[in-house]
Each structure stands twice: as structure tokens, then as C-alpha cells.
């Protein structure tokens, strides 16, 4: 507390946020538009150095043990009252709304003034053609049902997970009157979209252990990113033969 202003220091790795989100939110990428890995780019190196420094300020082991406590008990550190603030995904609102704690939701600040730092992916529904038209038609009917306004409103309301069907979101009074939903919907305009990489769908699994090694000071951040870049390039070469 200084000058009547309360400064809150948040441990910005708890909840559901990682190095990946910070990279995307500073406008950097892990893959170029034509799917070439650029994991060890200058901007990513700067970000990992900041990330490692930030986590090490609290102690990597302390961070890991807090995360371990969370995964062992299944209790979120924020909901358990261990931390005053954390970054989390939108559907965490469901747990918040079911808890009896006093909470507020705010957009995650971006790198520049006035920017929000949110990113999101989505999922897709696919119909695989096995050559049976009857099954394909039935699947298509199911797909239409799942993506209808009524279904999307139902799932969004039940799971607190915004629908990509804009008509469903616009026409529902629950979403329009709820202040938390309003924050979620407002940040959508600036939300960066995560991209699926078909040549290396599991690229994050190759980067995450390297990040851990940097956090535990087993490798320098630069070495960790270079090793991750190498591992992802090798995986892409292998995947071309092995398929995925």
C-alpha cells in the first residue's frame, strides 16, 4: 500500500495461464502462417526470460508445489483462498458462480495501454465420410441440432462457456444482463485466436518440459527454446512419415 493505492502482486502462472498465453498476447507466435515453427524467435526469448524471472521471484519450486497442491486436491488456489488473484479461463465462471466467495472479474491487461490480453481456441464438429450416406445424414442432423440457437444457449448457460454462434449470445437475456458475461463478451473483440497446427498437433507437449527445465534452472531460457525448436522440427519431419 502506498499513496492510498493498493498494489496487488499476482502470481501470474496460477489458474489457467502459461507461457504460451503470454507469447500470444504480446503479438508473437510459435508458428508462421505457413506452419513453420519459430519457437526460438527473439520475441519469444524475451517472453520466456520475463516468464522465468517472474516465476523465479516466487521460487519455481514454490510455484510448482502450489500447482501440485491444486492438482492433488482438485481445489483451485483462488477458490481455496491461497491467492488473491489468478488468471483463468472463461468457463471457470461456472465454479465461481457455484462458490460462496466474494469475487470480481476483470479483463487481463495487455502489453500496451488499453489492450486486453485474452486468447482462445475452439473446437470443431466433424463428419467423417465412411461411405454410408445414411450415417452421414444422421450425423448432419445431429450437427444441426448441436449448433442450433437453443442448444448453444443451453450449453453456454450450463457450462458458462460462450458460444461462437453470435445469434445465440445476442438473443439471450441471461448473457445480456449478467455483468460477468458482459466482461467475457467485451474482451472477445480483442481475443487472439489460437491456431491448430496439423503438422505438429502436440507441439506444446514438446515445449512444456523445456519450459519447466528453464524454470528449474536446468537450462538457460535460450537453450530451452532452442531445444524445443529442434524437438518440434524433428516431430514435424517424423509426423510427415508417421501421420497423425
Amino acid at each position: 500500500m502506498a499513496d492510498g493505492i493498493l498494489y496487488l502482486h499476482a502470481l501470474s502462472t496460477l489458474g489457467n495461464v502459461s507461457f504460451r498465453d503470454y507469447v500470444l498476447n504480446r503479438g508473437s507466435v510459435f508458428f508462421t502462417d505457413d506452419s513453420k515453427p519459430v519457437v526460438n524467435s527473439g520475441a519469444n526469448l524475451e517472453t520466456i526470460e520475463w516468464y522465468v524471472e517472474m516465476t523465479n521471484k516466487y521460487g519455481a519450486k514454490q510455484v510448482q508445489s502450489l500447482q501440485a497442491a491444486s492438482s492433488t486436491t482438485g481445489i483451485d488456489p483462488f477458490l481455496a483462498g491461497f491467492v488473491a488473484m489468478e488468471v483463468n479461463v472463461v468457463d471457470f465462471y461456472k465454479k465461481l458462480s457455484e462458490s460462496d466467495i466474494n469475487y470480481g472479474v476483470a479483463p487481463m491487461p495487455g502489453l500496451k495501454e488499453g489492450e486486453n490480453a485474452t486468447q482462445g481456441g475452439s473446437f470443431d464438429l466433424e463428419i467423417f465420410d465412411h461411405g454410408d450416406q445414411k450415417k452421414a445424414d444422421a450425423a448432419w442432423e445431429f450437427l444441426k441440432f448441436m449448433t442450433s440457437i437453443e442448444s448453444q444457449q443451453y450449453w453456454a448457460s450450463e457450462n458458462k462457456w460462450p458460444s461462437t454462434n453470435q445469434a445465440a449470445m445476442d438473443s439471450c437475456t441471461e448473457f445480456n444482463e449478467d455483468p460477468v458475461w458482459q466482461v467475457i463478451l467485451e474482451v472477445m473483440a480483442q481475443t487472439k485466436v489460437t491456431k491448430y497446427e496439423p503438422t505438429a498437433p502436440n507441439w506444446w507437449n514438446l515445449l512444456a518440459p523445456e519450459l519447466e527445465a528453464a524454470q528449474l534452472e536446468q537450462k538457460t531460457p535460450e537453450q530451452a527454446l532452442n531445444d524445443a525448436q529442434q524437438a518440434i522440427e524433428t516431430a514435424i519431419e517424423n509426423n510427415a512419415v508417421l501421420g497423425n
Binding site: 519450486k61 510448482q64 508445489s65 500447482q67 501440485a68 519447466e212 528449474l216 536446468q218
Partner: peptide, 29 residues
């Protein structure tokens, strides 16, 4: 997972009682 939990796990709590700071167990490579 409960026994080896670094903060409040049974093993580290016991080690702490006899003056030993337990390792991170599953969280330490």
C-alpha cells in the same frame, strides 16, 4: 499424491517435525 504433496503432504509434514525440509518429491525432476 497426498502423502508426497510438498506443502502439506504426510511425508514432508513428518520430516518437518524432525527438522528436515523435505524435497518437492513428484514436482522435482
Amino acid at each position: 499424491m497426498w502423502i508426497l504433496e510438498p506443502n502439506f503432504g504426510l511425508l514432508n509434514t513428518f520430516l518437518g517435525r524432525i527438522g528436515i525440509i523435505g524435497p518437492g518429491w513428484l514436482t522435482d525432476p
